[in-house]
Simulated scan of single mutants.
Amino acid sequence: MADTPPPSRAGSPAAHDTDLIIVGGGPAGCAAARMAAGVGMRSILAEPDRLCRNLHRIPALNNVLGGHTSGPELAGTIAAELKDTRLCRLELGRYVTELRTDEDRVTVTLDTGVRLTAPYAVVATGTAPLQPRDAAWITAPGGLTLPPLWQAGAAGAEGRTLLVLGGDRTIGTFLRAHPATGTRLLVAYPAADDYKVEEIREDPRVTLLPVGHLTLEPGEGAAVSAEVVGRGGERQAVVADAAYLSIGNAPTAPPGDLVRGADGYCPPTEQHPRVIVAGDLRSARFQRIMTALGSGSEAALRAYYATRRPPAEG
């Protein structure tokens, strides 16, 4: 469908700034904006960073359509398409400080103090990386921060032994991106990550360490040692040239009228009818680029069809 606005509808509040507010400019938020434009809806997308910023951290892709083989390549394609979408107004470099719902609108406040209103909002703010202090199964010196595994380039990792904390899927991405690297990965992970490590279990470069608890001690330079307590209480000492993180992410929902579960994620079915949650913010179990693109597109269509319901009689 052409990128043209729909005809005005009787009863549509003229005071709304746009038809749809989108919070978050990752794959889900961008897909929502593109789909909204495809059905003639105007949107405003607020993103504190560049579009699809996390895709730039993924050196190799093997599970998306369109022939894209790296995150930066896919991010560039998405950003270019969205910037050419006339019905989407981009608010890049802008944080959402509050989201409020009402009977007939959603109000979003930006960090500039500007308030935006629309009949519906899509919230697709995704997640941010965790640190050792955020994981109950890790004991580490106070204030210690470690880099995520995606920052370990092949040249710097070649021939070294890396301790990887957590079994998140960035490990599989690293191995696919560097198929010939001689790096050895010692992957220490809790029971909650058991299902995540299946895709790397057979890789000869990986040694899996299912743990109940791990105590980390920095050594000289980037070297580290750790005491690993297994699930059955057995203990072993582990030494590595460096340590990296793959313990997952924490949801980053904006303040305001969003319902959060015990894990911090925002279940879509528990939100106000005018707020539609999309992408990684929904759950930790289905965090994939393809599912984010699909859920963002579906979120925009939900808002589109909701605005076209006939008014209630009486």
Rank of each mutant, 00 (worst) to 15 (best):
L149K: 01
A31N: 06
A135I: 14
P251M: 10
P218T: 02
Y244L: 06
R285W: 06
A60I: 07
G11T: 03
G219R: 13
G40W: 09
E98V: 02
A240W: 04
A135L: 12
G143W: 09
R86D: 05
R285C: 05
V239A: 13
L146R: 04
A121V: 13
A28E: 12
R308T: 03
E158I: 03
A15W: 08
I58C: 03
L61C: 04
E202P: 01
V39N: 01
V123H: 04
G40V: 14
R274E: 06
T97E: 13
S43Q: 06
A152W: 10
Q131M: 09
R282S: 11
A306G: 03
H178W: 14
P59N: 06
A140K: 01
P5C: 12
A155C: 00
G230R: 12
V197N: 09
R94L: 08
P254L: 07
Q271D: 00
P210D: 06
T125A: 11
L92Q: 14
A250I: 09
V23L: 11
G167N: 12
R184T: 14
P132T: 10
E202N: 13
R89L: 13
G167Y: 12
L214S: 01
R86T: 04
E198P: 00
R42K: 08
V211P: 05
T18F: 02
V239T: 15
T125D: 01
V114A: 12
P268R: 07
A250F: 02
R115S: 10
L165T: 09
A128N: 00
I138W: 05
E47A: 13
Y189H: 14
P5A: 15
E103T: 06
I200T: 06
C52K: 00
A140P: 02
G71H: 10
G153L: 08
A152T: 00
V239Q: 11
R282L: 11
G232A: 13
L258D: 02
A191M: 02
R57Q: 06
H16D: 10
L20R: 12
T145H: 07
G296T: 08
G172T: 05
A242Y: 13
L90M: 12
L92M: 14
R9G: 07
K196Y: 07
V197T: 04
R308E: 00
L146Q: 04
A240Y: 02
P204T: 08
A2W: 08
E217C: 10
V39F: 03
L92V: 10
D19R: 05
R260L: 14
V239S: 12
G71A: 15
G142K: 15
R57M: 03
P148Q: 11
Y95T: 14
V122P: 04
V259S: 09
T4D: 11
A240M: 00
V114G: 09
Q151P: 01
T107L: 09
D3M: 08
G76H: 07
A10M: 08
T101M: 12
R302L: 13
E198N: 09
D134V: 09
